[in-house]
Amino acid sequence: MMKVWLEYRQRVNASIDEFFIGLYEKFVSVVYGFGQTLVFTHQCARYMFSKPSRFSNMIQHMHFIGNDSIIIIALTGCFTGLALSYQIYIGFNLVNATNLVGPTVALGIFKELAPVLTGLIVAARAGGAMAAQLGTMRVSEQIDALEVMGVNPKQYLVSPRILASFLTLPLLCGAFDFIAIHGSELLCVNVLGLDSAIFWDKIETWIEPKDIIEGLIKSAVFGITFSAICCKTGFYTSGGAKGVGEATNRGVVNSMVWIIILNFFVSNIIRMYFTIAEAL
């Protein structure tokens, strides 16, 4: 009886050990991957302004990230504005505060929804394409060919993509803000019967430029985040077509998770900055 009990205890202990070892290994691999991405981003940032200039490459990537995403951003922005306005109207109607629907919607969109949704949409669309393109170049030896030709592949392929994402995301976020708030106005004024003048007056009263700037800064950070993660996974792809598929999937998923995590920290850092700046 005692022997059976001891064996059972050993098995339970082994399972607990296995669980915690697995958890520890996962944690280490996440920290390691994070560190690798930071080093990769730092290296690519150093090459951004080195010679030869990759300005035309960057413009091409800005076109791909920006122009080709604008329709989907407009569509998402419009319907986000409509849905959010309706939900907030229902809530505020209960306490007879429907005049505040406009600024509440605006705050939610400018500070949170526009940068996060823009980041997520572009990460899925352009980030996936970046990871797949670089992954294909890696497995078909095109990146090796660049190195052999004496061309720095990070400077040629990655730096312009990261810089283009950094510059384009705030523009897309601004477009999202504009379309979402007009979508909100459309619903509030034409369907829910709010007064247009009050809607805009309350927004003007309650919304400050720093609220819009916060969203734009966050979207720029998300631009660097998704492009660095997707480019890194694509750049170090191995294992043929299967590897490219896995790298693309990993790049997009990691980008989305990190955008959501960073959103919390970056929001707080920006708020802290504004608080300190106002106090000074």
Binding site: T136, M137, S140, E141, Q142, D144, A145, E147, V148, M149, G150
Partner: peptide, 20 residues
């Protein structure tokens, strides 16, 4: 210097590795 040296070398890859 390594980049300059690589300019003195040309390589034909197994599958040509052309930029597609």
């Amino acid at each position: 210097e390594v980049i300059q040296l690589r300019c003195k070398m040309g390589m034909l890859f197994q599958h040509a590795a052309l930029f597609d």
